[in-house]
Each structure stands twice: as C-alpha cells, then as structure tokens.
Amino acid sequence: MKTFTYILLLLIIATGSLSLSNCSSPKEDKLIHNYYDYYNNKNYKELSKLLSDTIKLFDEGYLVLEGKEKFLDIVKWGEVFNSKNTLISLENKDGAWIATEKQSSDRINFLYGHDLKSETIFRLFKKKIVSIESNLIDFNAEKENKKMHLFIDWVKNNHSELMQNIWQLNSQGAKDFKKAMELYQNK
C-alpha cells in the first residue's frame, strides 16, 4: 500500500509539473503589456529590448518586414501619424499571445474615418518577441479601401514626386504620405 501511495504521489507531482510547464509565464504577460506601453510612448530603447534581432512582422498573413531595425523604423513611421495601439484584451492560446487591440492614427482616420480593430498574435522565444501578426477584425477591404485608391490616384496625378517614398515604412515615407494627405485635404 505504501508503494502504491508513493507511486500515486509521484504521478500527481509529475502531472502537475507537466501542466505547469505548459502554462504561460506571468512575465510574458507583462512583456506584452510593456510592448504596448513602449510602442505608444515611442520608447525605442526599451522597446528594442523586447524584440528579437530577427523579429518578423506580418499583416493580414503577408510578411511586411524582418529585423529589429526595420521594425523600429515602422514605429518611427507610425510616430509621424501619432499612431496608438490600445490593448483591449490579451489571452494565451497554444503558446501564442493573442491581443485584441484598437489601432488609431491620423493616417487611419484620414483613410477610413474611424479606428481599426485588430487581432494581433505575438510569438515569444527566450523572453523576446520573435513575430507579430496583425489581422483586422470586421474590415471590409473593398469598401474601406475606396478612399485610399482615390487618394493614391490623386497623388499620382497631382504630386507624383511624392509617390517615390509614400510606401516606404520609415520616417521619410511617413512624412511624404502625411504631406500628400495635407495636399489632398486642401485641394
């Protein structure tokens, strides 16, 4: 009987240890919250510490960029538009952190007239963010992108010099895009 009790106790401990090893760490939860804080406050130094050197950014399933420096460039791009991503909810599912977020910026407001909602998936490895995948929720691309297409056509026809950098995901690209927005609004 003692042997049976001892084996049963070992099985309970082993099962408990296995289930705990599959749980997400509270530190990972904090890491994601810090990401939003540093992103929204444009704290590049602290944000950089959270990212792997080879971070990948996906948007709607497409690889947008790879690498920490390029990622920080896109944050600087967003800074020109006063971008802010507000965390609505966060859950861990199958080792990935799934955030529901509200995305707002001058650019988003100009193109769509309202904030966007996104499901954003964070994957971590060794306490670093290795990938971020953003997928818009309740977004009708055909309907929502009409103004963007009108805008781009207008820029091509009236200020083609801005088209060279307008799609660059860096500070200069954002400045050219913002200048084109202002010209379009004042036409």
Rank of each mutant, 00 (worst) to 15 (best):
D59H: 15
Y62K: 15
L63V: 00
V64C: 00
L65I: 01
K68Q: 04
K68N: 08
F71C: 01
D73L: 08
I74L: 10
V75P: 01
V75L: 05
E79N: 03
V80L: 00
S83N: 03
K84Y: 08
T86V: 15
L87S: 13
S89L: 00
E91I: 03
N92P: 01
N92Q: 04
A96C: 07
A96D: 07
A96P: 04
I98M: 03
A99D: 11
T100D: 08
E101Y: 15
K102T: 10
Q103P: 10
S105R: 01
S105G: 07
D106C: 02
N109A: 11
N109E: 12
F110Y: 11
L111I: 05
Y112I: 06
G113E: 15
G113K: 09
H114I: 09
D115S: 03
D115P: 08
L116I: 12
S118Q: 15
S118Y: 09
E119G: 02
F122H: 03
R123P: 07
R123C: 06
K126W: 10
K127Y: 10
I129S: 03
S131A: 01
S131R: 03
S131D: 02
S131N: 05
I132F: 02
S134I: 15
I137W: 07
D138F: 03
F139Q: 09
F139T: 07
F139D: 11
N140R: 02
E142W: 09
K143M: 06
K146Q: 08
K147R: 11
K147W: 13
M148I: 09
L150R: 14
D153A: 14
D153F: 07
V155E: 06
V155Q: 06
V155N: 08
K156V: 05
N157T: 02
N158T: 00
H159V: 04
E161H: 15
N165G: 14
I166M: 15
I166S: 12
Q168M: 14
L169S: 06
N170E: 14
S171Y: 13
G173A: 12
G173K: 14
K175I: 15
F177Q: 06
